[in-house]
Design a protein around this nucleic acid. Sequence first.
DNA 1: CCAATTCCGAGCGATTTACTCTGTTTTCTC
DNA 2: GAGAAAACAGAGTAAATCGCTCGGAATTGG
Lengths: 153, 153
Amino acid sequence: MKLSTRARYGLKAMVDLALRYGGGMVSIATLANLQGISDAYLEQLIAALRKAGLVVSVRGAQGGYALSRPPEEINVDEVLQALEGSTAVMDCVGTKGNICDNACSCSARPLWLKLQNRIDEVLRNTTLADMAEDYKQQCIHMQNKQNPTEARG
Amino acid sequence: MKLSTRARYGLKAMVDLALRYGGGMVSIATLANLQGISDAYLEQLIAALRKAGLVVSVRGAQGGYALSRPPEEINVDEVLQALEGSTAVMDCVGTKGNICDNACSCSARPLWLKLQNRIDEVLRNTTLADMAEDYKQQCIHMQNKQNPTEARG
DNA sequence: CCAATTCCGAGCGATTTACTCTGTTTTCTC
DNA sequence: GAGAAAACAGAGTAAATCGCTCGGAATTGG
């Protein structure tokens, strides 16, 4: 049930790119520093995102990465799909349509379907813009911490 | 994101027990045959369910297992919790309340929380009785297969 | 007693995860 | 054109997890 660290780091890197969207290319080193992980590792994750067409890259000095589309047009499902291969809780209810032999006599299938639907609903209806916005709001609250009467609630 | 086969087999075994609830003890051998897995393996899964108090056992000849409560009173969340240890998509949003150091500055946390809520909603609102009922309905449809005008739609 | 059954824990091969390392190619800047 | 800064590629690897087996001990009905 748990999401991999690939998904976690990769998605957060995408939010970082969303926050910098329109501001030119961002290097692996910059993104990796933001999360405190190695360049080499993040490189792998970004590679998957690039192959999925979610980010574009420019090679050479002053090169780097940027979102291929505005953050409003990239949803979390696409990102996790690219990083994890699939977001299916069970192979038989994935987008690849892998049906198992005894699907129609499986006592658990209705549950998997319902669960997958709810998950997909969240993942497809959340965009990188939403996440970036949430994050910016969160930062405002943190700044208000010195003035706690405003921050809580 | 994927559920383990532990969860799959274990949950289906619980539905099998739900279907036989009130009818005495069911042996591992019987349950294992229903799913075509080895006795030894299912034994492990059932052990976890027993330790969680979801099934009761009787040792010795004519012994076996039964649900500890009526199927209406056992929800899927409890079952998966027992089998997988946790149903959390991310440690920081699990029932154990493992909070990560930088939770309040995490750009992904709001998403994890929302996702986990939707998942928990499904898992907590689905009981073994619901699953058993769905299954029985499914069987009726399958019997109608020889008479397809009734079955589909 | 004996057979059926749960209970217990060790073990094990295969896969996956979370990385690192080394090297190549591209492109900007001086 | 040289050199540095970057993306790109793919192999390797230690540790964890998964899916499952095995052997044996304890319990109980007949």
